[in-house]
Design a protein around this nucleic acid. Sequence first.
RNA 1: GGGAAAGUAGCUCAGUCGGUAGAGCACCGCCCUUUUAAGGCGAUGGUCGACGGUUCGAGUCCGUCCUUUCUCACCA
Length: 496
Amino acid sequence: MEELGKLISTRIDKISAIKEMGINPFPYNYEVTDFTQDIIDNFDDYNKNNEEFKSVSVAGRIMSVRLMGKAAFCTINDKKGHIQLYVALKNIGEKDYELFKILDIGDIIGVKGIVKKTQVGEITVYIDSLTLLTKNIRPLPIVKEKDGEVFDAFADKELRYRNRHIDLIVTHGVKETFQNRVKIIKNVKAILDSKDFLEVETPVLLPIYGGASASPFTTHHKTLDMMLYLRISLEPYLKRLIVGGIDRVYEIGKCFRNEGMDRTHNPEFTMLELYQAYADYNDMMNLTEELFEKSCKMLYGKTEINFDGKKIDLKRPWKRLKMNDAIKEYAKMDVDSMTDEEMKAAIRHKGGEIKGAFIRGLAINEIFELYVEEHLIQPVFITHQPLETTPLCKVDYEDERYLQRFELFINANEFANAYSESNDPVFQRKTLYEQSLRRDVDEEAAPMDENFVQAIETGMPPTGGLGIGIDRMVMLLTGERSIRDVLLFPTMKPEK
RNA sequence: GGGAAAGUAGCUCAGUCGGUAGAGCACCGCCCUUUUAAGGCGAUGGUCGACGGUUCGAGUCCGUCCUUUCUCACCA
């Protein structure tokens, strides 16, 4: 701490020295006309045969300095990339050169000059004007690079997450990941908008929660003197909008679940939920394929990606497999002909457990998770989950023990969940009531939502509903293995 | 929640058997007008995550705690 204090106070002293030179170390603006990567990409426009030059005005943060007496090379970063500057005493004059010599890595400068290649061919701005735009006082980590190999990378993940502003400056690829995140979300929205879906915003603070099995966060409103919950899903309000006649509706927004955290779970995360009237789960499968395939093509111009060393192809159409058939294929078991005892044994054999009373449908789901999930690397829609897995979905007309539902699996992870939504008000009231009774034994069972049931009683058209975990979609498409690498500011405990 | 690993200078990391705390980069001083992990010479910089314990002596051994990473379980 003492050392850091000295480094900082040295730089604060420099601010005084700069002011004494008659220079404002924190001026108000700078006219930027060019960006680093554009200059490199369009070198010929800036330098015609080393005879005709177009002058540039660039601003950025100093990332490295190589000072050689009366001249120096340095590198600056801007929003588009980085470029080398040639700073020579004879070109900028004594006063500005004196200023340059006391600048630090991390300072932000504006420069004007012309663009040339150095003896070894590096495109470089030969500056004739230097303006200090912001003096840094807190030293940055020094990351070096040669031939694409990075040395002394800012590698401590804890420091990176806690200091994302520094991570964005010094770690290659971080900015790109978050730019890609935005591109994916914009692309998803563009696809949905083109299909006449209406994007809406629904409440985050709720008097009652539902739409999923999860433990909520609570908060308190002073004036109303009441407890409020942070939403765990978007479903209850979006369905009311379907009832209200908004036939195609979606929201991309934060949901909050007060549960464990790991590589694929953050307490707050971003969900896409959409509802389409007069559609069923088949339409939702087609739409899901389209969203993933088009987003992948938008980023990479192709449908194959490498994730975690595995080649994954998102080209449509994807395999569609009933849950029981998946169990037959991967676990060599026919659950329809198994006794309860055989199913219990199969679950225990893989280290699973049955919570509470034995429910056949939940046991089938458990067997699927234990035996099948790990094999589902290429995209596959698993359909026809047992009736007991959710109260919000219609049963299949061919076999009422199973649902018109699918879960999308890619690389053994769940990416989407969709239903032919239940709209039978009598059935809905009954199942939600029964679920609410389980709250004694299952903390995550949702309470009865009377307003929601009344909306369904008003009459909800046949509707297909789809939920996609946006963070996981971004992880897949950017190749990141941890949700914390696709969240700018992942949830962290404060340092003590 | 379980398991494993980590925390030493601003950053990246060494630190052997318990015996005065190390390097590179950054920073500071000096030299240097085509460097690019620039180079050369020199100097500064440490409550070794916190608190206890063992010991003549602890960065090192033991215990508790804090933070993080990875992983298993659960959920998206």
